[in-house]
Design a protein around this nucleic acid. Structure first.
Lengths: 110, 110
DNA sequence: TCGGTGTATTGACGATTGTCGATGTATAGC
DNA sequence: GCTATACATCGACAATCGTCAATACACCGA
C-alpha cells in the first residue's frame, strides 16, 4: 500500500566545498599543469622567461595563468631585478592532498 | 661583456596534461564535489532523487553534473526500474591520486 | 634622464560553463 | 493502450574562461 521508495534515503553531504572547488579549478587547465609540473620538478625557482619560451602561449597569457596560480596559493613569486622567479608554494602538495582527502575520505568505520 | 641571463635556463615540462586537466576540471565545481563526497561516504549506490532533494539545484542541473562526472569516469550508474543509482567509480580515488602524483612528483634524486 | 628589456595589466573577443524551463524517454501500474 | 513518475536531453541565457594585441609598469645600463 505504501508508495514504493527507491531506497533508504541518503543525505547529501552538506559541507560546502567552495574552497576545494576553487583549488581544483586552478588545476583544470593543461598549461597551468605544465607550469606546476615544471616548478615541482625544478624544486627551485623558475624564471617567467622560461615559461614564455617553453609554452605555446603569448606572454600575457602566461602571465595570466601565473596570476591564477598565485591567487590559488599554489605558487609564490619574487622579483629580482628585471626578472620574476616563481616557485611552488611550500604547502601546495599538502593542500591538494588534503582537499582530495576531504572529499574522498572513507565512511567512518566506527 | 656577455648579456646577463636571468638564470640557467629551465626547460618547461613538455608532457601534455590534457587528460589530467580534464579530470581536475570535473572537480572544479563545489556541487560536483558534494556529489562525489556523498558517494564516497556512502560507499554504496545513491539514488538520483537524493541529489535532486539534497542539492540547491533543479533536476536538469543535477542531471547535467552527473553526466559530467560520468564522462570523466569518476562515477558509474545503473538503472533499476524507474530509478537510477550512482556510485563512485572503483578507481576514482586511484586515478585522482595518480594524476596529482604525475604533476607533483619530486625531481628524480638519482 | 633616457632607451631597452622583462613582466603585469587592460580591453576585447570567441569558447566554454552553470543554470533553468520545456520537452523527451524509460519504466511501472492500471 | 493511458497516466504518472524518474531521469535525461535540448535550447537558451548570463557568467566565466582562455587567449591575444596593446599598453602600462618596473628595473637596469648608459
Amino acid at each position: 500500500m505504501s508508495i514504493q521508495r527507491c531506497c533508504p534515503p541518503t543525505s547529501v553531504v552538506s559541507a560546502d566545498f567552495e574552497s576545494e572547488g576553487t583549488l581544483f579549478k586552478a588545476l583544470g587547465d593543461s598549461h597551468r599543469l605544465s607550469i606546476l609540473a615544471t616548478l615541482a620538478r625544478a624544486e627551485d625557482e623558475v624564471c617567467v622567461c622560461d615559461f614564455t619560451a617553453g609554452l605555446p602561449l603569448n606572454q600575457p597569457t602566461v602571465s595570466h595563468h601565473l596570476k591564477l596560480l598565485r591567487e590559488a596559493g599554489l605558487v609564490t613569486c619574487e622579483r629580482r631585478g628585471t626578472w620574476v622567479y616563481y616557485r611552488l608554494a611550500p604547502d601546495a602538495r599538502e593542500r591538494l592532498g588534503a582537499s582530495l582527502h576531504a572529499i574522498f575520505k572513507e565512511k567512518s568505520l566506527a
